[in-house]
C-alpha cells in the first residue's frame, strides 16, 4: 500500500477519490459519537457525572495527536532512509494538523480540569502530568514547523526536520517518565485530583462502561479519517505547488 502510493501520480489519483470519502465518513463518525456521547449514554455515576461527556472530544484528540507525532516521525524516517519524496511531503502536511489537534487536546483538557479538579489553571498545570506531556508535544510540533520555515532550501529543510522529528520521537518516553515523576512530587494534595487524573487513562482496564469506550472509538476513528483527509489535501497542494514551481522555473529559463 505504502510503496504503491509512493508514486506521486498514483497518490494523486488515489487521494482524489479518498479525500471526499474520508471527509464525509469522518464527519459522520464524529457526529455519531458526539450524538451518542452527549445525548444517549447515561452520565457517569462513579465520577464526573455529565462532565465526563467532555471525554468524547478530549480523549480522541489525545490519541490522535500522539498518533500524528508517530506519523510525523515515521514518515521522516522513511524519507531519511529511502528518500521517498512523498514521505517528506507527508511529514510537511502532518505537522500543522498535528499541532492543531495537540492544541485542541491541551485546551479541552484544561477546560475539563478547570471544572473537574475545581481549582483553577495553576493547579491544573501542576496537577496533570499527561496534559503537561501534551503541551510538550505541542512544542515539538512547533519547533518542527519553525525549523522547516527557517531553512531556505527544500532539501536542507527536509533533512534537518527529519532528524529533529526522529530525535524528538525517541525522547518522548523519557519526557513522559520525567513529567510523571515531576507530577508525583509537585502535587501537594493527594485528594480527588489524583484519583480522577489517574482513573481516566486506564479506564479501559479499570472497567469503563463499554458504551463509553465504543463512542470514544467512533470519535477516534472519525477524527483520524478527518485528519487523513486534511493531510492528503495539504499533500496535494504541496505536489501542485512543486509542479507549478517547476513550470515557472522552466518558463523563466526558456525565455
Amino acid at each position: 500500500m505504502i510503496s504503491y502510493l509512493a508514486n506521486p501520480s498514483r497518490f494523486m489519483g488515489f487521494s482524489r477519490r479518498a479525500i471526499p470519502i474520508a471527509g464525509v465518513l469522518g464527519i459522520l463518525m464524529v457526529g455519531w459519537s458526539l450524538y451518542n456521547g452527549l445525548l444517549v449514554v447515561p452520565p457517569d455515576e462513579k465520577q464526573g457525572g455529565d462532565l465526563m461527556r467532555a471525554m468524547f472530544t478530549h480523549v480522541p484528540s489525545a490519541w490522535l495527536c500522539m498518533g500524528l507525532y508517530a506519523g510525523l516521525a515515521g514518515s521522516s524516517f522513511v524519507w531519511f532512509i529511502w528518500r521517498h519524496e512523498l514521505a517528506d511531503v507527508a511529514a510537511r502536511a502532518i505537522a500543522p494538523i498535528g499541532a492543531g489537534y495537540t492544541a485542541l487536546c491541551f485546551v479541552t483538557g484544561a477546560i475539563w480540569g478547570q471544572k473537574g479538579w475545581g481549582s483553577g489553571w495553576h493547579n491544573l498545570i501542576l496537577g496533570d502530568s499527561r496534559l503537561m506531556s501534551v503541551l510538550i508535544l505541542f512544542f515539538l510540533f512547533l519547533g518542527y514547523m519553525a525549523l522547516r520555515a527557517a531553512l531556505e532550501t527544500r532539501q536542507k529543510a527536509a533533512r534537518a526536520a527529519a532528524i529533529l522529528a526522529m530525535v524528538g520521537f525517541i525522547n518522548i518516553p523519557i519526557i513522559k517518565v520525567s513529567v510523571d515523576m515531576w507530577q508525583t512530587t509537585t502535587i501537594h494534595q493527594p485528594s480527588s485530583v489524583l484519583s480522577i487524573g489517574n482513573s481516566e487513562p486506564r479506564s479501559e482496564d479499570s472497567g469503563m462502561n463499554p458504551v463509553y469506550l465504543q463512542q470514544l472509538l467512533w470519535g477516534f476513528g472519525g477524527h483520524s479519517l478527518l485528519a487523513a483527509a486534511m493531510i492528503m489535501l495539504i499533500m496535494r497542494s504541496e505536489i501542485h505547488d512543486q509542479r507549478a514551481n517547476r513550470l515557472l522555473a522552466q518558463k523563466l529559463g526558456g525565455s
Binding site: V30, R53, P96, I97, L104, W112, Q114, M230, S237
Partner: peptide, 20 residues
C-alpha cells in the same frame, strides 16, 4: 464545560479543514 469543549472539538477540525 461540556458544550465549550464539544464546540472546540468541532471548530478546530473545521478550521484545520478549511485551511487545508
Amino acid at each position: 464545560y461540556v458544550w465549550s469543549i464539544t464546540l472546540l472539538g468541532i471548530v478546530t477540525p473545521l478550521l484545520l479543514g478549511s485551511y487545508a
